[in-house]
Design a protein around this nucleic acid. Sequence first.
DNA 1: AAAAACGATAGTATAATCCTATACATAAGG
DNA 2: CCTTATGTATAGGATTATACTATCGTTTTT
Lengths: 293, 293
Amino acid sequence: MEIRQLHYFLKLCNELHFSEAAYQLGISQPTLSQQIRVLEDEVGVPLFDRMGKKTEKTEAGAILEHYAMQAVRQLENAKQAIADLTAMNAGSLRVAVLPSDLDYRLTALLIEFHKEFPRTKVQVVPSLNIVNQVLDNEVDIGVGLSAKPDSRLHRTPFYTETYSLYIRQDHPLAERNVISVEDLGAVPLVMYPKGFYGRDLIDAWCLERQTSIDALMETGSAASLFQLVQAGIGGTIQPSRLIESLRSTDIRSVPIQDSPVRDLEIVYRNDKYVSLAAKTFIRRLETFFQGDG
Amino acid sequence: MEIRQLHYFLKLCNELHFSEAAYQLGISQPTLSQQIRVLEDEVGVPLFDRMGKKTEKTEAGAILEHYAMQAVRQLENAKQAIADLTAMNAGSLRVAVLPSDLDYRLTALLIEFHKEFPRTKVQVVPSLNIVNQVLDNEVDIGVGLSAKPDSRLHRTPFYTETYSLYIRQDHPLAERNVISVEDLGAVPLVMYPKGFYGRDLIDAWCLERQTSIDALMETGSAASLFQLVQAGIGGTIQPSRLIESLRSTDIRSVPIQDSPVRDLEIVYRNDKYVSLAAKTFIRRLETFFQGDG
DNA sequence: AAAAACGATAGTATAATCCTATACATAAGG
DNA sequence: CCTTATGTATAGGATTATACTATCGTTTTT
């Protein structure tokens, strides 16, 4: 029993006329007769009574018609659902991002994306191990720092970020237009702990310049760092663009001269299908940062 | 999209392992890969993510799985329903019979048949034109008098009936064991009108014997004839076996010597499928009359 | 680094589907 | 009653789809 045969069968149920049904189906009449015969052999009973020139459904034919219509409809629904999915009317998307990016930047993008595609479920997970989550298929795409090349991953750099010093407006350096590496030694700093990318990057940058920073306080959360800054504990070094999402008038960002940089990129498994939802999300992400920077 | 492919697909959804699914399906792994590919080409998106050794469903795969399961289930239901039908657990049967037979004999058979196959709908229509009703497919089978051969009809004689005189017990002839054609002339008779088979048969029989009957009263209903007999109006000539279903102790039946006979037969279109319900009904009908006579 | 596991690909054999031509049967018309 | 028209089944052959075996390329495991 095949779908094709059921289509033939259902057409014949409507027409009750082999030649006419075959014509409408675009096949020859003998082919229709044969395929109906195959169906009848399979169910074991005739589906139609061929009485001279009149053709009528048998009981079994009426029963099969009922169920076959439902089955065919189910499969049409499936095709439509999948079409909707690829047409970005539905579907889902899992994204792994750096926690600080999620807290301070991506939310605006998510809101914008949702307005455009309200039926697409987007799940964003903060992660410090984005590449592994992508490799393990725990997420569809990852947005994070440039990692070492991997043949299994497709990587698309989309933004190069500079760093700024974030400090409360009543601090002397808050008035400056730019900060040098030497200036940083004179500021009490609150930073990520060692081992965090956002900390190690700064440490390496300082090391290149024969200096080092002395962190007064360390926390693993960007939000807490900014609260410490706002409390006047000290300054912190964070990506420059974060300030635009930061709703605090008390904190100023001062660009760092010859700043350390980090490259943000989009990663996904190169053997994984990139849904239209994912494609569109990536495109929005790129324009979001381009328009922002 | 074919049922076979959906079966392959659903198995693969369960196993998430091409080789294993192919083994369970009894096909080769390349065949499974190819057929899944065909499905994917048809819906336009991958149904599985082949990620190295791990295989997982895509969104589209999950959607199709849901609908495909329902579709396959519908078709299984259809097969079961048809199987039930042929297994005489359901179905329907339309029978045309002579009115008098229905009134006086077949009801017992119907009760018996229903006990054995309670889910089979049986529709019995009294008819004076059984052959035409069979030819027009208004009924599935007909039970009636032997008609002239027709190449479109399948005919199975199952009973040859003799006739008796039915008369009230207080009539002198009620004591006799047998009645001759001459005796009939001395009895007031109530009969079917001319043109009814049950009347014309008797008239022809009398004509062969150089006599004729004089009907005192004529009605088209066997029931009314018996009521007339019971009222003492006269006797009537009816098939011998009717008495056994006749619940009147006032009426006696006396066999007629060298009786006229009528052949009862089962007719159905030879191009019409004889359902198991019909087959069984026919068999019960035959044993019913054999056991009765 | 070698081996094993897994899926994709290539090439070919088999089977199913489809077509044309024609036969057979029934209903309709002169 | 015979002829014609209509409708379906059958036969034979062409095409397509499906299946297999053998093998390759990757990825994971030992």
